[in-house]
């Protein structure tokens, strides 16, 4: 399969990339890891007039923690970099759990977290994770930079609120308010398939009590789902069997799954509540052991 013809540009700076996107007038696409875009070009689901390949822009592949605990992931940080990172394990366990579950090992060598967010596939793992950890992206355009919470980034399937001449340069996760815990679970028929269901849960606790919680759902709606009510049910008290069950129930209600070849809607809702409970029970158990 061959993509349609396009003009190829490989800028060496963020400013140059933005100027090209601006010139492209909405007919240009950013190429980062390309693990979703290139297949779409080949299938001709996408046929942009211009590709702006950002792989030659230096210093965008970082993964770092600022002194105040803020985590920053550059636009060229690959899934494999996140998977191998020791930083995530202690700092953002929900992200650490998700990194090895994104697609397959070869795709992870090339694909990027920021690219996955901008691709806005409702089946994308990182968007749910970033919703759970309250992440945002920094977008730069001709008029400067702005922050967009990941929960507000997706407009719908494959659609974001990014302007055509804005480039997402990094994803940012604020420092946890207390001790960060959580996880990501994904049901897939085989490695690399789209998720039947994915669930990201992140909680932050101070003195045993949950001070912040976030739950994001993958693949059970037209867009990434922010299960706000389910997360709220956990805040203000230590985790308990009752609060965990309630969060699972509310998350299943927030899901909008469709019955398809991967499973029925009822089944998918059941998986959502099961995964929420499984992640939270594990967190509660490990806390019990630590205490």
């Amino acid at each position: 399969m061959y993509p349609s013809r396009f003009q190829y540009e490989a800028p060496r700076s963020i400013e140059e990339a933005i100027a090209l996107l601006h010139k492209g007038g909405g007919e240009a696409k950013v190429l980062a890891g390309g693990q979703s875009l290139v297949p779409m070009l080949k299938l001709r689901f996408a046929s942009p007039e211009m590709l702006v390949d950002i792989n030659n822009i230096p210093d965008l592949d970082y993964l770092r923690v600022d002194s105040d605990g803020t985590l920053r992931i550059g636009a060229l940080c690959r899934h494999a970099d996140l998977e191998k990172s020791m930083v995530l394990e202690t700092h953002q366990p929900t992200m650490a759990a998700a990194a090895p579950l994104v697609s397959d090992p070869i795709v992870r060598n090339r694909g990027t977290l920021v690219g996955s967010l901008c691709h806005a596939d409702p089946q994308g793992d990182w968007a749910s994770v970033m919703v759970a950890v309250d992440g945002h992206i920094v977008a730069q355009g001709p008029k400067g930079r702005r922050s967009i919470p990941v929960s507000e980034l997706m407009k719908g399937p494959f659609q974001t609120v990014l302007a055509y001449d804005e480039l997402a340069i990094e994803a940012v996760v604020p420092a946890p308010k207390g001790v960060a815990a959580g996880g990501y679970l994904k049901l897939e028929r085989r490695v690399g398939d789209f998720a039947t269901v994915g669930v990201a849960v992140a909680i932050e606790t101070t003195d045993g009590s949950v001070v912040r919680a976030g739950i994001g759902l993958t693949g059970v709606g037209g867009s990434t789902i922010n299960a706000k009510d389910a997360a709220s049910a956990l805040v203000g008290a230590p985790l308990s069997a009752a609060s965990i069950a309630r969060a699972g129930e509310l998350a299943a209600q927030a899901a909008q799954p469709r019955s398809d070849h991967r499973g029925g809607a009822t089944y998918k809702r059941h998986i959502v509540s099961t995964f929420v409970a499984r992640i939270l029970n594990e967190v509660a158990e490990s806390k019990g052991k630590a205490a």
Partner: peptide
């Protein structure tokens, strides 16, 4: 040809990539 099977894997600067998914 859709980034699933991995038979087109080559090492790109030493790292495995799917060569059907790179220009």
């Amino acid at each position: 040809d859709t980034t699933n099977c991995g038979v087109c894997t080559v090492l790109f600067d030493g790292t495995p990539i799917k060569s059907c998914t790179m220009l």
